[in-house]
Design a binder for these strands. Structure first.
Length: 429
RNA sequence: GCGGCCGUGGCGAAGUGGUUAACGCACCGGAUUGUGGCUCCGGCAUACGUGGGUUCGAUCCCCACCGGUCGCCCCA
């Protein structure tokens, strides 16, 4: 009997984990530059946090959540997205009362969505995300978008498209919603079954339908941008001006609609335009959610953020042929020529490590040639040999693999020699 | 959730209704008794996704399931 990882999940093995580490490190550095702080929230929440936060009629809540009852009879849900939990934490810990506002937060977290898996669409997926709470300045919208784009740029991605839209404030949305219902209702029977439902629940989504895209009513449908009230329109204009000011190119797509209920005002999506990316091109998506904190029981607090799929980021790097700098070398490999030398070899490895030098040895009882072969495969910089002669003379033979040069050094001078060679007297970062 | 395609050792990849299921890579050992590559020689491995069915006999044909993949839906 053998087992497989459950459908839609994946193991990250050593070859790939280095890539993940690099991606995470790179993003964290960007976050530091933007002055954002990490927040970590639980893997699961009370189901209600998502029902109220994300919205009862959304696909995520209706058919994609991993929900179960725990032993205490509570309804628990594995987080399907990152914003609602962060806002919940912000409200719960009364972070609105803290001195430093707005709260500029980032997270790395795995999300869970019960969907049919595909490449770039997993049931357990990893996201990097950012949430800013407490500022309704359009400049922060631009900053958040800048942060997302900077992460991609930092990793060398170039084939990207930023799409933005405004969903307006509550009043604008309501007016638009009414207009949509009035516009589509006469054609209701001509629309696909999904759209007939959408027309009742969330008419905005009709605009996003791929099936009815060619329907004549689509072209004449009322655009949200025409229904923005003065303040909403003004807000959107300012966001665009700030984006222009920091040199970020974008495209306005009046049909860009986000799938979660909490969004208003600024909505954006970053897509890959790299060849062979298939149907799934969205790398990151986000927007403003000014009513969410209130919805989750807190004071009225503006917020904006995004989620970035890390599996898709790795795919994009791959599609653009961006090589991830992965250092697989090893500083020292200790070779024991025979059994007599084992003890000394083990002692030497341990001493090297205590002195900050990467060191390893053979544990398979290989002969000398096999040990060298292993050292070669590990891209070892120095092989340290201990054999009969070295034991007798209290020395170690050091071979620099790149040149093939080797010399014999007194045992008590070895560590200083290796430190000089490997650490340059400065030590590791 | 819907439709198409796919599933052979660790990886890649032939193949057939019937005695030991090719080959390449990788790995291990030897040629080279204290030294990496190449070459040559030898070796290795829980391999036909799972379960049924048809058949004298199935890795091959049929069905179901599982998994992957592509498209739809939706999204990261």
């Amino acid at each position: 009997m053998s087992y497989k990882a459950p459908r839609g999940t994946a193991d990250v093995l050593p070859g790939d984990s280095r890539k993940w580490q690099w991606v995470e490190e790179t993003i964290k550095q960007v976050c530091r530059r933007f002055h954002y702080e990490e927040i970590r929230t639980p893997l699961f929440e009370h189901t209600e946090v998502f029902q109220r936060g994300v919205g009862d009629t959304t696909d995520i809540v209706q058919k994609e959540m991993y929900t179960f009852e725990d032993r205490g009879g509570r309804s628990i849900t594995l987080r399907p997205e990152g914003t609602a939990p962060v806002v919940r934490a912000y409200v719960e810990h009364k972070m609105y009362g803290q001195a430093n506002q707005p709260a500029k937060l980032y997270y790395f977290a795995e999300m869970f969505r019960y969907e049919r898996p595909q490449k770039g669409r997993m049931r357990q997926l990893n996201q990097f995300g950012v949430e800013v709470l407490g500022s309704a300045d359009p400049a922060i919208d631009a900053e958040v978008i800048d942060l997302a784009m900077s992460c991609y740029r930092e990793m060398g991605l170039t084939s990207l498209k930023l799409v933005i839209n405004s969903l307006g404030d509550k009043e604008s949305r309501e007016n638009h919603r009414q207009a949509l219902i009035e516009h589509f209702s006469p054609h209701k029977h001509e629309l696909c079954s999904d759209c007939q439902m959408r027309l009742e629940n969330n008419p905005l989504r009709v605009l996003d339908c791929k099936q009815d895209r060619e329907h004549p009513a689509m072209r004449t449908a009322p655009s949200i941008l025409d229904y923005l009230n003065v303040s909403s329109r003004d807000y959107f204009e300012q966001v665009k001006e700030y984006l222009d000011a920091i040199g970020i190119a974008y495209e306005v797509d009046k049909n860009l609609v986000r799938g979660l209920d909490y969004y208003n005002h600024t909505a954006f999506e970053i897509m890959s335009e790299a060849e062979g990316f298939g149907a799934i091109t969205t790398l990151a998506g986000g927007g403003r959610y000014n009513g969410l904190a209130e919805e989750l029981g807190g004071p009225s607090t503006p917020g904006i953020g995004f989620g970035m799929g890390l599996e898709r980021l790795l795919m994009a790097l791959d599609a653009e042929n961006q090589k991830i700098p992965v250092d697989r070398s090893l500083e020292a490999y200790v070779v024991a020529v025979d059994n007599q030398a084992q003890k000394e070899a083990i002692r030497l490895v341990s001493t090297l490590r205590k002195n900050g030098i990467q060191a390893d040895k053979d544990y398979l009882g290989k002969k000398m040639k096999g040990q060298f072969k292993a050292a070669d495969r590990y891209q070892t910089k120095f092989v340290l040999i201990i054999g009969e002669d070295e034991l007798k003379d209290q020395t170690v033979t050091v071979k620099e693999m790149s040149t093939g040069n080797q010399k014999t050094i007194d045992r008590d001078k070895l560590i200083d020699f290796m430190k000089e060679k490997c650490l340059g007297g400065k030590g590791h970062e």
